[in-house]
Amino acid sequence: MPDREPKIVGFCCEKHGIDSVDLAARSGRQYDSSIRLVRVPCTGRVDGTHLLKALEEGADAVFVLGCLEKNCYYDTGSIEGRKRVAYVKSMLSEVGIEPERVEMFNASSSMSWKFSEIASNMVKVAARLGPIGSRGGGR
């Protein structure tokens, strides 16, 4: 069992990503405080190395939250974000780290329910898997 609270980093776009987080907060939704959000202009900005470095710096799980595909403010940004997450997932699998630690989500500015669901999914994954290496995988 991990001896600390989970640490989860979320790269969240400044358009509908953060709008959905804001709407959730201002609709009284509650979620686990383990989520640490870092804003990016578009999830297309997110690099595979960002996701890996976050894990290296102590995150148990990392997610990327962008606009719905086909409604990305920058047209294909959230599709790029998804591709990056998929690429990192495959890399993690190759080195024996659970690919569920990295995930892609999409939301729109009118979804008040989605962010707490995202948070709770990631917290479940992080709590189940513990810090990287704690179950013999990775390092």
């Binding site: 086909k70 999409n106 729109s108 009118s110």
Partner: peptide
């Protein structure tokens, strides 16, 4: 009070436009 009709892909309902 209208829902966004997309899950990961937008379905062009227009609701978020009004909210924005």
């Amino acid at each position: 009070e209208l829902a966004c009709k997309g899950i990961s892909e937008c379905r062009d309902c227009g609701v978020c436009y009004a909210i924005d």
